[in-house]
Design a binder for these strands. Structure first.
Lengths: 156, 156
DNA sequence: CATAATAGTTATAAGGCATATCTGTTATTG
DNA sequence: CAATAACAGATATGCCTTATAACTATTATG
């Protein structure tokens, strides 16, 4: 009974029974933790989740257009612009003109970009191994599979 | 081959193999979908995820203080103020003075608040059943359990 | 060719979240 | 017990994420 002290009004422990009945509640709580840890993990590389994700997709899809990238990231084009701006300014990627379509840019990672991504990605893998340390591979696979099966509903 | 059209540069389908190796990536994608659907679900009640959550916790913990609520929701006190303001303005909750501690407020849901929450919560349950329709109860339990086992790491 | 559609951009706004700071109030402690 | 620390709530402020509207330049279409 360390510091029982002065319990203001009702319970010391807040009852969240109603919310715990919802899967989405657990998803949010878990993701908050993962996200916070990921932010710390990426900080040494001066990357945020969004810039890391964009860089990952550009590295894995050389020549990608901004519209494709925005679509893949599930964000709107205007919001992607500043992300691509930042990666370009840091010379991690280049915006090349597409000869066959002068409206579009072909995004490609530079050598520095690929190198930084390699290091950042290794850190992210370590971060995940740390966070999911007490979760065996089978459970981890089940978790991943269950999550990836959640899909948008068709609007009948 | 419906609309193959004019494939700008590289693939039609963006390769996110690297990202798919991370559980957090699947968590974010899945949560985005759940969150978007939840927003639509709560709209008829003029609730957002945060106001719904706050209301749920106040209904389930009558007399809760704002500090306790903020801590339970994992947000900072200043951000809770506006949420509680909104619920109070809509007369879904009341801020009662705590006689034993004149600094604190005891939050309690009004009858209208409890009624609205009842309806909203039923809608949220329906929303989850819809989203997780193709997931059997065992998988759903495994998912919930795996998610709730993700914990903040001790900073050795 | 006129019009629509597309790629990228700019401007703008709203929501979510954090920090610093302030006012009262309560707790601690020398 | 008076001085100080700690706490509850509130205000101000700023950053990040995301969305929409509207603009330019270019390409596609009827």
């Amino acid at each position: 009974m360390a510091k029982a002290a002065k319990s203001i009004t009702p319970p010391e422990k807040v009852n969240d029974e109603t919310l715990r009945a919802h899967v989405g509640y657990h998803m949010k709580r878990a993701f908050n933790i993962v996200q916070a840890d990921l932010t710390l993990t990426l900080k040494p590389f001066e990357l945020r989740m969004l810039t890391y994700t964009a860089l990952a997709l550009i590295v894995g899809n050389p020549g990608l257009s901004q519209a494709q990238l925005a679509q893949a990231m599930g964000i709107e084009r205007p919001n992607l612009v500043v992300i691509v701006d930042e990666l370009e300014r840091r010379e991690l990627i280049v915006r090349d003109k597409v000869p066959t379509d002068r409206r579009a840019y072909a995004l490609t990672a530079t050598l520095a970009g690929r190198r930084l991504f390699g290091k950042a990605n290794a850190a992210v893998i370590a971060h995940e191994n740390r966070l999911f340390a007490d979760m065996d591979d089978a459970t981890r696979a089940t978790l991943t599979d269950a999550l990836s099966r959640i899909r948008k509903q068709e609007k009948t």
